[in-house]
């Protein structure tokens, strides 16, 4: 089977990899004009935390994602997620506990000694994981390369077309919308955190994901907008003040990157595989690209080649 995958973000790379694993001849076309939204992702495999706002489907399927990634790109960081809240927003923590599963109450400083004396209690989601999305995409691409997948910036769409272009596919998917996200990357060698932290706040929730060597990704805003322009001052202020609330040493951090991107989303915010006029569309990743793209890629391969694989 010959396939052309459009787009080399997380959806496209997962689709290309799985199809190639099952014996398809795959070509990926990405003009490389825009940075994929997944390059700005947190890289969290946090199905239980996402359950706060996402439906059960995402929680269930998301639990298979960590193993999928680990099988293909090697070890990912499996140290769980710690959810905390400022003392006056403790009700947010209680609400989060009610809205999610897979957690235990814990003393934050026991998990992250750097938080000693700062937060009396937290929710620990032990089964969650994270990875550096850029490294993960690079490694997945290398793996796809090894499976014979070819990459091009343009060319003919031969064979079965799988459109994974994210927001760029809106010309074919009129119900797609963009949810703007803004993130920071900081160098904060004075802060020592080993796992993903989520700070709950009624207005500015944020997460901090360790990227190793004293670097942290701080994200991310959620704005109902298709404006991909530069990060706003408000976003930087909100994200940094949230980080500062987690640990004051973030005030001394060097800001090494500020980026804004557009998450492609459907009305229910659930990533989905669609078949339309002979094409497949793997889109609407919203906040769940790393969590859901592997499953959708497998689903795609089952639909396209299930018979083949069974016969083989």
């Amino acid at each position: 089977m010959i396939c052309t995958v459009l787009g080399a973000g997380v959806a496209g790379l997962c689709a290309a990899t799985v199809l190639a694993e099952r014996g398809a001849e795959v070509r990926v076309i990405d003009p490389g004009l825009a940075q994929p939204a997944s390059m700005l992702a947190g890289g969290m495999i946090a199905p239980f935390c996402e359950g706060e706002s996402a439906p059960d489907l995402v929680v269930q399927i998301g639990q298979t994602a960590a193993d999928w990634w680990q099988d293909r790109i090697g070890p990912i960081t499996r140290r769980g997620t710690l959810v905390i809240a400022p003392s006056r927003d403790q009700v947010e923590l209680d609400r989060f506990a009610r809205a999610t599963s897979g957690h235990v109450w814990s003393r934050p400083a026991e998990l992250e000694p750097a938080l000693e004396g700062r937060f009396a209690r937290g929710l620990f989601f032990g089964a969650e994981a994270h990875m550096d999305p850029r490294a993960a995409l690079r490694l997945l691409r290398t793996r796809a390369d090894g499976l014979g997948v070819t990459f091009a910036t343009d060319g003919d769409e031969v064979g079965q077309v799988i459109d994974c272009r994210g927001w760029a596919a809106r010309d074919h998917l009129p119900d797609l919308r963009a949810v703007r996200g803004e993130m920071l990357l900081v160098d904060a060698p004075d802060v020592t955190l080993s796992r993903t932290l989520r700070l709950l706040h009624p207005r500015f929730p944020c997460y901090i994901v360790p990227r190793g060597e004293g670097r942290y990704m701080i994200g991310a805003t959620m704005v109902e907008s298709a404006d991909s322009g530069p990060v706003t001052a408000r976003a930087v202020m909100e994200l940094l003040s949230a980080a500062y609330t987690v640990h004051p040493a973030f005030a001394e951090a060097r800001v090494i990157e500020v980026s804004a991107g557009l998450r492609p989303a459907f009305a229910d915010n659930i990533p989905v595989l669609r078949q339309l006029d002979g094409r497949f569309y793997l889109n609407g990743m919203y906040r769940h690209g790393f969590l859901m793209a592997p499953h959708l890629a497998e689903q795609l391969a089952d639909t396209l080649m299930g018979g083949l694989q069974n016969a083989g």
């Binding site: 919308r177 963009a178 907008s225 298709a226 408000r234």
Partner: peptide
């Protein structure tokens, strides 16, 4: 205020 002109997708919904 925050969404500005770019928020048409959500507004249409």
């Amino acid at each position: 205020r925050r969404e500005g002109q770019g928020g048409a997708g959500f507004r249409d919904l």
